[in-house]
């Protein structure tokens, strides 16, 4: 579904991604793990088109998208739940969700109902402003908003950041459910053990390079990964 070939990106003169290549197949959950500052968020932003690419290619369903504007990529089926939630604070929960479907002519009620089904707390709070939600609820809102675009590929950036363990389980449980519904997921996480546990495959990103790749469980068992990212 998604093929990234030799992708490079930079902030001004500071190069952040160095010829990164990876692949996400239809129906997979792929985890991208690595420490702070490895370039994980930058990579996701280049995929959505909000961070410019300085070299390489991004193929989505076989067609190059690296020159497309972000809204065109959303229309193709790439949707992102960004790091730090980035909800529309002054707008209501329901407005946040409806804006998630901005590219679709009709914001269909079914998707909204599904999201309320998945995160009942959002339905309860649908009239209040997004900034008055707790961190975990904002995370659910950010994921729900990304799902309103009815994406083929969902990019999740640090969905567990700053959440209590119980909430992390709930959010990652929702990700597994999305996979069952046929949505392909690229999951970026600092919480490597949690991410690799639910992932089919994983990549380890270190200072802008992919240093390891493999099946989720295989990476979890890899002594280098255990030492570097799991603290074992």
């Amino acid at each position: 579904m998604l093929t990234v070939e030799c992708l490079s990106s930079a902030y001004g003169r500071i190069s952040v991604l160095h010829e990164v290549s990876l692949e996400v197949k239809t129906g997979e959950i792929v985890a991208l793990v690595g420490s702070n500052g490895a370039g994980k968020t930058t990579l996701l932003r280049t995929l959505s088109g909000v961070q410019p690419v300085s070299g390489g290619r991004i193929l989505f369903e076989g067609r190059p998208v690296e020159r497309l504007e972000p809204h065109a990529r959303v229309a193709l089926g790439i949707s992102q739940s960004p790091e730090g939630r980035q909800v529309f604070g002054p707008l209501s929960v329901e407005d946040n969700l409806r804006l998630g479907a901005f590219r679709r002519r009709a914001a269909d009620k079914d998707t909204l109902a599904q999201i309320y089904d998945m995160f009942p707390v959002l339905a309860e709070k649908r009239r209040i402003s997004a900034m008055s939600l707790s961190g975990g609820q904002q995370q659910m809102l950010a994921i729900g908003r990304a799902l309103m675009a009815a994406p083929k590929l969902l990019l999740l950036d640090e969905p567990s950041l700053g959440l209590a363990p119980l909430l992390i389980d709930q959010i990652l449980g929702a990700v597994v459910k999305l996979k069952a519904e046929g949505i392909t997921v690229l999951l970026v996480e600092q919480n490597a053990s949690a991410a690799l546990a639910i992932a089919d495959r994983g990549y380890v990103l270190e200072t802008g390079h992919i240093v390891l790749e493999g099946r989720g469980q295989a990476l979890l068992d890899d002594p280098k990964v255990r030492a570097a990212y799991l603290g074992m």
Binding site: V50, P70, Q80, Q86, F88, P90, L91, L99, F102, A149
Partner: peptide, 18 residues
């Protein structure tokens, strides 16, 4: 709402396809 959303958070506005 899209206009208000753009004001509230431009990055998120671009990510939802505005």
């Amino acid at each position: 709402k899209a206009l208000l959303a753009t004001a509230a958070n431009r990055l998120a506005a671009r990510l939802v396809g505005i």
